[in-house]
Design a protein around this nucleic acid. Sequence first.
DNA 1: CTTGCTGCAAAAGATTTGCATATCG
DNA 2: CGATATGCAAATCTTTTGCAGCAAG
Lengths: 148, 148
Amino acid sequence: MTESSEVIDELKKIVKQKGLKYTEQREVVLNVLLHAEDHLTAEEIYNLIKSENPDSNIGIATVYRALSFLEEVNLIASINFGVDGKKYESNKKEHHDHLICTSCGKIIEFVDNEIEKRQEKIAKKNKFKITSHSMQLYGICPDCQNKK
Amino acid sequence: MTESSEVIDELKKIVKQKGLKYTEQREVVLNVLLHAEDHLTAEEIYNLIKSENPDSNIGIATVYRALSFLEEVNLIASINFGVDGKKYESNKKEHHDHLICTSCGKIIEFVDNEIEKRQEKIAKKNKFKITSHSMQLYGICPDCQNKK
DNA sequence: CTTGCTGCAAAAGATTTGCATATCG
DNA sequence: CGATATGCAAATCTTTTGCAGCAAG
């Protein structure tokens, strides 16, 4: 996993390069995701910020705007976990894919080097310059199979 | 790709087995997805039904209810394409993955047998019973790389 | 018949936008 | 200062629910 401060620096660089402004709020949102174990919804992020920093006066709209921005510049990514709607995660954590139980919502993360290699090969074949990828396997976990 | 009528039969079977009722509306929603090229949002499905069958009087709420039901019994699956929110696709169409250009939005579909095999292996290792999966590689396509 | 399904409209949630103000560069 | 971001509230979606009538088994 990349050092959190490095990512923050990356954000600063991107912002500067685009002639935009570096704000506390964008940093906070990114920071929450860098330290989160889970994938979070916009509202969860908003609540986290509020609870960790009750005096901060950030608005939910700003969280949404920050998330869109961060996703656009590829510092974070969003996935749909079916039941719970759109969730965000940092792109800078160690990469992993997802095994998702559609019955109970359980998520198992995994990495498979073979697949990673094949992905690069496919990208190269199509002359794509890959910035990120996401893979989800949906199914029924062992527990839920037994519940029937 | 499975024959469309076979899937319809499957739906009939599931409905009967659950002691529920077989309705025209559930069939229509499933049918749209079986014949769709793209992944569709609930609203797109609703509009398609309305336009192909202007006299039908289906409500959007019914589309949502049918989609939830069909997803629950694994005849269809939903994916998040990032920008556009939740989209549905049939689970019975020929499978493919996606290479997506984040600059111009172009989508290239592909299938890689190596990856498919690895996915099954991973599922097996975790004792998951896979119902579907989705994989997206995000990047910049050759055209957009040259535009700079 | 009985139970589940539907359409409609209203409700609830989630996300976006307009605008005046505050802040960064 | 000038341009961009922010917070707030209002406006827009999107999705879910309540309910009375309809339809399938």
